[in-house]
Design a protein around this nucleic acid. Structure first.
Lengths: 166, 166
DNA sequence: TAGCAGGCGTTATATTGTAACAGATGACCT
DNA sequence: AGGTCATCTGTTACAATATAACGCCTGCTA
């Protein structure tokens, strides 16, 4: 399990975010070509907004971007773009926040865990190799069929912790 | 890690729920006495509603109960009772659903994982001994201070699975 | 008995998300 | 070329979840 930007670094700390963002964007484009998915202007606009930072953005913040770009006016525009991005593994919904982040692991569907800073709303993502092994074992023992696992750790990132403690 | 009702059984399957419910209710009352907490009529009403089943209920479903009992009319009545119950470890919020369940582990604050059936909304709770050890280790390695961990497995319980598959 | 904290009532509003239907576009077939 | 189909988008209207802010009441206690 590793926490990473597109370049294997800690997203809570300064990094070459331009390269980080562009690498993910290129990977998504390539993946869409391969899988015959349409990265339409509205979808690309939402993805780009998410890629501007490692912060979780709400659907309405993303809708603002669509409005400014002239690519949509009403909530369904944002939710449709997000539905596409989440369904295809290009973004994740952070349940704890009702907000969304770009996926930094490039396309393939996977099970993810998140560190969510409640101060700056930045999110670090970890690929979980197994969907919480112990949990899966217990689920099986009661005949429960797991379809999706949400793992979100809420807290304070190093930067915000230092800012608060002086 | 064990999934349990108050009597160590699988909450997705039939059990002596009257005893299950009454034991939790008594434990909560005892805990409130010990800790000087006030289990007011409105709070008890919400707790009792949650204890009627192992299903997650929304704040507005709970507000209906308060209304019928003449113990509150507006949303804040429900949210205040829930705030008390959650803050003191007597209930949990299921982030995935925006809904609430009674805690079956009797009071002490703890870290929990949930199996959430998306068909019947019943919820099984597991006490996590350590707050996701691997996650905590990784958090520490990037200087992230974890305050709370959400672990929710969404899927289909045995009963609902059988109903669907014939 | 004055002050204080906690609990509650009420109004108003914020935030997040969906249903439903219609128009537009582009791919593909004949 | 024209027909047909699926997908994407526009729009209206609304549902569902949650909170801010203010003020009253009650019971404790200094």
């Amino acid at each position: 399990m590793t926490f990473a930007t597109a370049f294997g670094r800690d997203p809570f700390r300064p990094h070459d975010h331009r390269r980080c963002r562009e690498a993910v964007r290129a990977a998504v484009e390539a993946d869409c070509r391969e899988r015959g998915l349409r990265l339409t202007p509205a979808r690309a606009c939402v993805l780009d907004a998410l890629l501007e930072s490692h912060r979780a953005l709400t659907a309405y913040e993303l809708l603002d971007r669509l409005r400014k770009a002239g690519l949509g006016q009403q909530p369904p525009a944002a939710y449709r773009a997000l539905e596409f991005l989440v369904a295809n593994g290009f973004a994740h919904r952070i349940e704890r926040l009702g907000a969304y982040v770009a996926c930094v692991h490039g396309g393939a569907s996977h099970c993810a865990a998140f560190l969510v800073c409640r101060a700056c709303r930045r999110v670090a993502e970890a690929a979980l190799d197994e969907p919480e092994q112990a949990l899966a074992a217990k689920a099986e023992s009661v005949g429960f069929q797991v379809e999706r696992v949400v793992v979100e750790a809420e807290g304070i990132c190093e930067t915000c912790g230092r800012a608060a403690n002086g």
